[in-house]
């Protein structure tokens, strides 16, 4: 990503150019506020996080309570999104599904961003053979399509929530390493890094206190878009039966279960998929807006 270095310099420029010495993040927010689509995306994400937190209060039924008398009911007032083949309320399950998806999305990106970020920062800071070695390892991971790598990892570790997050996180790791490395390369030559070195700061401290904070802009953009990708990958794995197992209400596995009833009860497949689409769309729109705000030069 060649935008990475530029984002940093834009951030720095904002800080210097502002008459009242406002923080660069304030400038970013000011630009973001003018992007209506990004604000809508952000609103949707905030709402979804609220739904996920408040799911127990908002849902009319227990998402796992079966009721064989109420199997495969069409959407109605008492069951707004219908019921599944075990008579479970789909509305409650879809709302609870947001918890798992957001959880998996954020934790997986956390895993990828932390490990990838550290690898990228170390490579970019030290350069030379170490950098070369790290980046060649990332090339190897990138040579395997992301979803296939995730499937292989989950297949080996076994299906569980934690393993799913690890698999998706590792499969995303290279892109954070690359983005952070690109920023680290531009930062490491700056005066303040030299100054830190001159006063005798150790490398670890320089990386943590000087390099990483200055790579934050591209990391945040990449993470926002990464959460969207992670949610899609996790749902795809669950859909293939290699992710979160039923009866846990997860959108991907709900879709997979609904597939058998596509003819009788299409709403079983429709709503979970719609939910995934809305979350991922909102995250992508917000991520795009954030990138434009952090790097106005890229904006057409």
């Amino acid at each position: 990503m060649n935008s990475a270095g530029r984002s940093y310099s834009t951030l720095a420029a904002c800080g210097v150019a502002g008459e009242k010495r406002r923080s660069p993040w304030w400038e970013v927010w000011r630009r973001l506020r003018r992007n209506r689509a990004a604000l809508v995306g952000m609103g949707v994400i905030i709402m979804l996080v609220m739904v996920a937190i408040l799911a127990p209060v908002l849902t009319p039924y227990d998402p796992n309570k079966t009721d064989m008398k109420a199997r495969l009911q069409r959407p109605s007032l008492s069951h707004p999104l219908g019921t599944d083949n075990f008579g479970r309320d789909m509305f409650s399950r879809v709302l609870y599904g947001s918890r798992i998806s957001l959880y998996v999305g954020f934790v997986a990106v956390g895993i990828g961003a932390i490990f990838g970020g550290v690898l990228g920062a170390v490579g970019g800071y030290y350069g030379g053979r170490l950098d070369n070695f790290i980046m060649r390892c990332m090339d190897v991971l990138l040579a395997i399509p992301q979803i296939i790598l995730a499937i292989a990892i989950v297949g080996a570790l076994g299906t569980s929530l934690v393993n799913l997050m690890i698999a998706v996180g590792i499969s995303q790791l290279p892109r954070y390493a690359r983005v952070v490395r690109a920023s680290a390369l531009t930062v490491r030559g700056q005066e303040f890094v030299e100054a830190a070195r001159a006063v005798g700061a150790r490398d670890v401290r320089i990386i943590v206190e000087n390099i990483l904070p200055n790579c934050m802009a591209p990391i945040i953009v990449q993470s926002t878009l990464g959460v969207a990708q992670a949610i899609l990958s996790a749902a795809a794995l669950s859909f293939l039966g290699l992710g979160i197992q039923p009866p846990t209400p997860e959108w991907g596995s709900m879709l997979s279960a609904g597939r058998q009833f596509l003819r009788q009860a299409p709403y079983l497949s429709f709503f979970p998929g719609l939910a995934i689409s809305i979350v991922v769309l909102a995250l992508n729109i917000f991520g795009d807006g954030l990138r434009d705000s952090l790097d106005p030069k890229l904006r057409q």
Partner: peptide, 22 residues
């Protein structure tokens, strides 16, 4: 374009099946 990038492909698959096979 943005929707094509965001909508899960397995969902598109099921919805196409629903539309053109059922």
């Amino acid at each position: 374009a943005l929707a094509g990038f965001s909508i899960p492909n397995f969902w598109i698959a099921l919805m196409l099946m629903l539309l053109f096979s059922i």
